[in-house]
Design a protein around this nucleic acid. Structure first.
Lengths: 174, 174
DNA sequence: TGCTGAATGAGAACGTGTTCTCATTGCGGG
DNA sequence: CCCGCAATGAGAACACGTTCTCATTCAGCA
């Protein structure tokens, strides 16, 4: 079902992910989709979580390059941004799910946000992050989300996301 | 229509703002609502814009207190946060509209975000903001949006919004 | 083999955002 | 006063997320 979701999302964004189509594409009944995912948002959030975890895996295999912590964080964020902007429709669908999540989906939203924060602290340096590291990473993940919302909403171009993140990272990590 | 929207939103959040009810409450036909607001999101975004402009007005009448730029910015952000968290349902409705806006509403999203950024640069000091000021304000408005999304989505408590903003402001403005 | 209960399939049904149709109203120009 | 026309009212109609119903399948078990 998640594969079907990603495929439909990549094709036409949020609106193209229609629950009936997800069910058909996955070869199950509509009720079965709702047995496992309580809403369309959750379905997209779980798909998003898979993507973020995949990113985390790729990063652990091929760690970020860069001399300073700031450089490494910028590298990670730009790589992530490039991955997202390469599949604009799929990203738009998942970001929209993030932005319109209800209370019932708060656990999924929290997992996505924690995964992103962990990716950023991981790029800073080896070992446990300090409190300040965690605060910085949290801010960056918030900037990340808002930038993506601006991009998928057509407010900014795709390059703005990376630039915003780089500026924020360099201001926060000295 | 915007008054009706705000009233309904204050009562029950995003889901309580039903276009038929907005029309009835405003004493117009459903088609008339759609003549002036192309979608439910736009209706809520225009309502949100009014709120943000009202905040800007209040701040110009009663400027933020504080010795340093950081203190003044924190004061503004905390006041704004208090205003929002006092009407949780209305805020939830408008934030959800912001988070799920489509391309057609990009102008409204941009206006909200610009208004917020202007409020923050205005709190820093008199006169024109520098490029760095603008970057800092942009980051803070992004943190503001993401924090509100986290709050209305039930991920964080209301106090987290203010704390996140204060931490971010103090890290960015020295 | 037959029984039981959970999972699933198939599809109807409902609510709400959105679109469409068409008659009515009201106003400015002849 | 009447015409033309844009705005509006009233409500049907449509699309899609969500819920519900009920029959069928199938694994585990006696």
């Amino acid at each position: 079902m998640i594969d079907a979701t990603l495929e439909l999302a990549a094709g036409g964004g949020f609106d193209a992910v229609q629950m009936r189509d997800v069910a058909a594409e996955a070869g199950v009944a509509l009720g079965t989709v709702y047995r496992y995912f309580e809403s369309k948002e959750r379905l997209l959030l779980e798909a998003n979580l898979e993507q973020v975890e995949a990113l985390r895996l790729r990063l652990s295999e091929r760690p970020p390059t860069g001399e300073s912590a700031a450089d490494r964080v910028v590298d990670v964020l730009r790589r992530a941004t490039r991955t997202q902007t390469r599949r604009p429709e799929a990203t738009a669908a998942m970001v929209r799910a993030l932005g319109s999540a209800r209370r019932e989906e708060s656990d999924a939203v929290a997992r996505v946000s924690e995964a992103m924060t962990a990716i950023i602290t991981g790029a800073m340096h080896e070992g446990d992050p300090s409190d300040r590291d965690r605060s910085v990473a949290r801010v960056l993940s918030q900037v990340w989300l808002s930038s993506l919302i601006g991009w998928v909403g057509g407010v900014d171009g795709p390059e703005v996301v990376g630039d915003d993140l780089e500026r924020a990272a360099r201001m926060l990590i000295s």
